[in-house]
Amino acid sequence: MKRNSVASQLLPWLIPLIIIILWQIASSLTWISSNVLPAPLAVVSAGVELFESGELMTNLTISLYRATVGFVIGGGIGFILGLLTGLSKTCRLLLDSTIQMIRNIPHLALIPLVIAWFGIDEVSKIFLVAIGVMFPVYVNTLHGIIGVDSDLIEMGKIYQLSKWQLYTNIIFPSALPSILVGIRYALGVMWTTLIVAETIASDSGIGYMAMNAREFMQMDVIVLSILLYAILGKISDLIAKYFEDITLAWRDL
C-alpha cells in the first residue's frame, strides 16, 4: 500500500524528468545550440547567480504578491456574484446576462486601457489578474449551485431546515466540487495573465526579468523565468488539489 502511494506521487514527475535529461544530453552533444535553448545546468547556474545577487527573490516575491492579491480579490468577487445569481432568480435575471457579456471580452485586450487608467504600477497588474480570475470562479460557482439536486433541497425542506441550514448542509457541499474546479482553472488564468502583464507593462517581477534578459540575449535567464512560471503554476495547482482532497474527503466514504 505504501509502495503504491510513493509510486503515485513520483509518477507525475517521470515525464518532466525524462525531458530534462534528454534536454541536457542534446545540449551536451551540441544538438541544440545554446543560443536557441541553453542547457538545464546553464539555467540552474543562472538561477543560482540571480539568487545570490538577490534579484531572483525580489522579483519572485513581487510576482507572488501580485498573483495572490489579484486572485483573492477577483476570486472573492466571482464567488459572491456566483452565490447571488445562483441562490436568487431575481439576481440571476438582473446580473447574469451582463456578466456573461463582459466575460466574453478578452481581459488581456484591456491592457492598453488599464495602462491608461493606472499606469504600470501594482494596481494595473492586480486589476488584470482579478478580472481574469473572477469569471472562472463565477461561472463554476453559479453552475454548481443551480446544479444541486432538487430532491436534496426538497428533502431539506421536509426536515424543516432553515434557509441557512439548507445552504450550509445541502447547497454549498453539493456545489463545492464545481466551485473547486473553477478555482483550479482560475489559478491557471492567474499565472497566464500575470505573465502577459509583467512582460508588457512592468518594471519588476519575473516577466520583467525575462524581458530585461531579452535585451541582453540572456537566454538562460529567459528560460529560467519561463520555468519559474511553470513551477509556480504547478505548486499552486497542488495546493488547490490538496484542499480539494480535504474538503471533498466525504466522496471516498
Rank of each mutant, 00 (worst) to 15 (best):
L87S: 01
D121Q: 15
S124D: 07
L108E: 07
T98V: 15
L128P: 09
I111A: 10
I126W: 02
L94G: 08
I77V: 15
M101L: 15
T61E: 13
S124R: 11
F79Y: 14
S63E: 08
T98I: 15
M57N: 11
D96G: 07
N104F: 06
L94H: 07
F71H: 05
H143W: 08
V133Q: 01
G119C: 03
H143T: 15
I126C: 04
H143V: 13
A67S: 14
V69G: 04
L128S: 05
T98C: 04
L113A: 13
L84H: 08
F71G: 00
L113K: 05
G78L: 02
L60W: 10
T141R: 01
L56Y: 11
A116W: 06
E52P: 01
P106F: 03
S124N: 08
G70M: 06
F71L: 08
I77Y: 07
S97M: 11
G74I: 09
S88T: 12
F51V: 10
L94D: 09
L128C: 03
M101I: 15
A130C: 06
K125L: 03
G132Y: 00
I77C: 13
L113N: 04
V129T: 02
I105A: 06
L84T: 01
K125W: 06
D96F: 12
H107W: 14
I120F: 12
L93P: 00
G78M: 07
N59W: 03
F127Q: 01
G132H: 02
F118T: 07
S53G: 13
